[in-house]
Design a protein around this nucleic acid. Structure first.
Length: 298
DNA sequence: GAGTTTTCCCATGTTACCTCA
DNA sequence: AGTGAGGTAACATGGGAAAAC
């Protein structure tokens, strides 16, 4: 139960297996890690999963109540590629007893936030038991405290380092994988909302541009009509011998025409100021944390 | 040093479950 | 009580990047 205190303290993973490796993991590189105790915070996130799992298992072992699902969670791995890769069944239920015992653990109080065990976990455990660990996905509902804490963390940093992930998982009595998934989903939701906002923004600009365009078209049509008239209102200069030096229209019309043409033909910097570039990809563009972070593995 | 493989993380899309009107 | 919509946790997949070979 004190494993979390040793995060990062161990110079090398101490692979003290207390349980036999699952048959499906034989020969894989993570075999030891999958069941090992004493992994450091610099180990893989999946090992964090397993570490948390082991904490739970240990908590169950510490408690007086025997855990009937010990073998269930230790052995059958999911048939999915990712699960096999990771070597850990994220859907494997963490028995309420185990989670509760974590909250009651002898770890320093500061490392834990007392999070009420959600109903979903309880059901998950019993359901899993009923289905023999079958592929029944029971939905865990995070408590308000858990969600709020995750939200706060997300505001600080929308991606996680291994250490942050495991610390959050410990604090919220969740599996690191759950924290990871929550952050992924949260990023997706943020991006979706940003995209919707961008879309609305563009829509309004598009409508404004359409209105402006119609107005300019009318002005152009009017100017052309003036140009075709036998005696345009301001073309008296042409008739008085100044045609070589004077414009064909009065200065105000010329100014209007030039500005109109300029506005129609090329937006120029003024237009870009008026309608700034849409913030597509605002969520990811240039965001340092969305680029691959340097591995914290020592 | 270049090429290939492995490993990890992420974005994205989907599924399944839960809640609520 | 039944139901559909919306929210969201969990999952699947593919790609990029770095490390390992």
């Amino acid at each position: 139960m004190e494993l979390e205190l040793s995060l990062g303290d161990l110079p090398a993973p101490v692979k003290a297996n207390t349980m036999p490796a699952p048959a499906t993991c034989q020969g894989e590189d993570h075999d030891d890690l999958a069941l090992g105790l004493g992994v450091t915070a610099t180990e893989r996130a999946d090992q964090d999963n397993q570490r948390t799992s082991m904490e739970t298992l240990e908590g169950e072992a510490d408690s007086d109540e025997a855990c009937p699902k010990l073998s269930v969670r230790a052995s059958p791995l999911r048939q999915t590629a990712s699960a096999n890769l990771r070597g850990f069944d994220v859907n494997a239920a963490i028995p309420v007893d185990g989670r509760a015992s974590m909250a009651r653990s002898s770890s320093p109080p500061s490392m834990h936030m007392e999070v009420p065990v959600t109903q979903g976990v309880d059901e998950e455990a019993s359901e899993d038991e009923e289905n023999g660990g079958g592929r029944v996905r029971k939905k865990l509902r995070l408590s308000k405290e858990q969600s709020a804490f995750l939200e706060d963390s997300f505001k600080e940093h929308n991606t996680l380092t291994l250490e942050q992930k495991s610390r959050l998982a410990n604090r919220l009595s969740l599996r690191p994988r759950q924290v990871e998934v929550w952050f992924q989903n949260r990023r997706a939701r943020t991006k979706l909302k940003q995209t919707e906002a961008d879309c609305e923004h563009l829509k309004r600009h598009c409508e404004a541009l359409a209105r402006e365009n119609r107005k300019l078209q009318r002005e152009v049509a009017e100017l052309r009509a003036y140009g075709r008239a036998p005696y345009p209102p301001y073309n008296h200069h042409l008739l008085s011998g100044f045609s070589t030096v004077l414009p064909a229209a009065c200065p105000s019309c010329v100014a209007t025409t030039h500005s109109t043409i300029a506005a129609v033909s090329s937006p120029g910097p003024a237009a870009s100021t008026l309608f700034p570039r849409p913030r597509f990809g605002a969520f990811t563009a240039g965001h340092p944390v969305l680029r691959r972070q340097p591995s914290t593995t020592l």
